[in-house]
Design a protein around this nucleic acid. Structure first.
Lengths: 202, 202
DNA sequence: GACTATACAGACAGGTCTGTCTGTTTGCTA
DNA sequence: TAGCAAACAGACAGACCTGTCTGTATAGTC
């Protein structure tokens, strides 16, 4: 899907790629409204006309930015090894720790974007809603497989905890997150013994 | 504390109040960077020079906006009736439901502001950090009183869940929040029977 | 009435924003 | 060599941004 130009045609598609990469970095680091087109094209080394050829408006670039992150996240989850449901849930939640420990964490890109886009009907907000629906549904399916008595409620709590831990990593202390993720999963999932590695000794 | 001018001195202090009220509404509804000074003074009915007399810069107004919300939140918690620790924790968490059900919820003002202020050294971010530290400490104290074996960890989980539920109310479904708040508290707090109303039948 | 404090109205400067436009260069293809 | 598609450079328009400034009106106080 990602066509890394520069094969035979030195610039074919690479301008779009550079724009999206640069915008991703700048939008995430500085916030969306704080970053102007001029800065993006300067740092990407792309002419303004070329930018507006690939993205009819700035909001189209913002949308592409979020959709690309969404795509990568879904691909990462899809490529997880096939484990028992509860271990899958743990693996998904532990992606939080990995994202946060890497450094330069500036909060969840979707929550940050939502803060800047108040209109729920805007394409940006709809992309965020789609992302959240996918995440919730993925967890709910696994919880149902795991025999959770209220998979939708538990999934909502896991989504909320994911959001909260991602924000906590940004605003409080990133290093404490991995331990908190484990603790949260242990406490939130209903104790059902026998399936797999949960302790169930209490 | 709130002095609604127009008593004997028709305009004494009321300009600052109108500015802060208007800014609070607009910053929260539309986002901080999206609202210009011109719009604030127009809707507040205040001259620009008057604005800059009360607030040396826009960031000072932003800071006043967050500090006022912080002050109100702390006052509301301080004025809760004196209950047993666990009930106090529940009461604090249930403030989430009340805030969210009222309608017009646009997410946590502090998380929204943090999304727009990347520099952790900025006064805005420091106000956010102070708010979060207060909230965490308040919960931790109550948990310690309640005999929680790891009050700091549990407090961190409650903070994360608060953040997450507030975001969920904004982006997913506000009406489901009250039930989720109760469920979250039940599942997160360690089961210690005998104190008060926790079921402890499992 | 004179003085002071407060707020009003609005022009202005200097910068930045998005988006459009003209014209040039580059490199592949026929 | 000619043609074409893509990207380059950068001027420009029109709006909006923050912050400064000048001048006026009002109300309370001495």
């Amino acid at each position: 899907m990602i066509e890394q130009g520069t094969g035979n045609r030195p610039g074919a598609g690479s301008a779009r790629l550079r724009l999206l990469d640069t915008a991703t970095r700048l939008f995430y680091e500085a916030g969306i409204h704080s970053v102007g087109i001029d800065r993006i094209i300067a740092e990407a080394g792309v002419a303004k006309a070329t930018f507006y050829k690939h993205f009819p408006s700035k909001d189209d670039l913002v949308l592409a930015y979020l959709e690309e992150i969404d795509r990568l996240g879904r691909a990462a989850v899809a490529s997880l090894p096939d484990l028992a449901p509860r271990k899958m849930i743990s693996a998904i939640m532990e992606r939080i720790s990995k994202a946060v420990i890497a450094g330069g964490w500036r909060g969840c890109p979707f929550l940050n974007a939502a803060a800047e886009y108040p209109d729920p009907a805007s394409p940006v907000r709809q992309a965020i809603a789609a992302r959240r629906a996918w995440y919730h549904q993925s967890l709910e399916n696994l919880l149902a497989e795991d025999g959770d008595p209220a998979p939708s409620v538990t999934a909502s709590l896991l989504v909320a905890l994911s959001d909260g831990l991602l924000e906590s990593a940004y605003l409080d202390d990133a290093e404490s997150i991995p331990a908190l993720v484990g603790e949260a999963v242990t406490r939130l999932l209903s104790r059902q013994c026998g399936d797999d590695g949960t302790s169930c000794t209490d």
